[in-house]
């Protein structure tokens, strides 16, 4: 076999794939797992924060204690959002992984740190997306819900959040794709993700360009598939444009069967 310095560009790529193909795949798997889990947890955090941020306060009917508690949580959550949106994730990773051990004597494993950092980072971004999604729902929807006697909470669960959720799916997709790429900064805390594999492989044979080409192709494949799947999900949620008319003659018989109800 020719030495690596005598190979052409494509030969080197094939060589790297033969030698390290499984390492690349494992790295990609790690990247995908961190991105998926963290985006999911981040969305949960985002929803929780966004919901709290949009609780209206009624100075007349809410007790002083309740108003104070809600106001306080809003301020704390706002601080959380600003802190994690306003600092680089790579610094947050170092801060939590090394800082927690040094200063607070909390020894987080690198996996725990990785999931934690990406989740709370996503949560900070999603919080604002969710808040935006909620306030972008037509105010008439909330009035309609209030007019039939719903509380703020009932209106949120049954009317507002389902509509807000549909509106922010593009944002969830955005964050997922960003997370697939940005987990690369976690190599700083020795997470063996796709980028970490690249650095090791490239360093071993000085094949920076070839390895980067492979890694870029893998990242792009992952994000393209993610983006396609998200589109399909959106279309699924939008449902069919058609609906069945119910035959008037059948109404009597169908009182108990017709019309699948989503209200449980």
């Amino acid at each position: 076999m020719a030495s690596i310095s005598e190979m052409s560009f494509w030969q080197r790529i094939i060589f790297l794939l033969q030698q390290y193909g499984s390492s690349y795949l494992k790295g990609a798997g790690t990247t995908l797992v961190i991105a998926l889990v963290s985006t999911f947890i981040g969305c949960l955090i985002g929803f929780a924060v966004g919901i709290v941020q949009t609780i209206p306060l009624d100075p007349k009917r809410d007790s002083k204690v309740k108003r104070l508690l809600i106001q306080l949580s809003k301020i704390l959550l706002k601080a959380y959002v600003e802190l994690f949106r306003g600092t680089p994730m790579i610094v947050q990773a170092v801060f939590i992984y090394y800082g927690a051990a040094q200063v607070f004597d909390i020894h987080l494993g690198m996996w725990q740190s990785a999931f934690l950092v990406v989740s709370i980072n996503t949560g900070a971004y999603m919080a604002e997306s969710v808040r935006g999604g909620i306030i972008s729902v037509d105010p008439g929807q909330m009035e309609g819900a209030k007019a039939i006697g719903m509380t703020h909470f009932q209106a949120m669960v049954n009317v507002i959040l389902p509509q807000a959720f549909r509106n922010i799916i593009p944002q969830i997709g955005n964050n997922f794709i960003i997370n697939i790429k940005d987990t690369s900064v976690l190599s700083i805390i020795s997470i063996v993700d796709l980028f970490f594999v690249h650095k090791s492989v490239a360093g071993a044979y000085y094949t920076y360009f070839e390895s980067a080409t492979i890694v870029m192709a893998i990242y792009l494949t992952m994000t393209l598939i993610a983006s396609k799947l998200l589109n399909l999900w959106e279309r699924y949620l939008d449902g069919n444009d058609n609906y069945e008319l119910v035959d008037k003659m059948d109404i009597g018989n169908q009182m108990h069967s017709a019309g699948r109800s989503a209200v449980r």
């Binding site: 009035e143 309609g144 819900a145 039939i148 049954n158 509509q163 109800s261």
Partner: peptide, 18 residues
Amino acid sequence: NLFHNLTVLDNCMVGPIK
């Protein structure tokens, strides 16, 4: 101000149920 996320039937059922 009908609830856009619900069908006609569910719009009329959600109040009585919830």
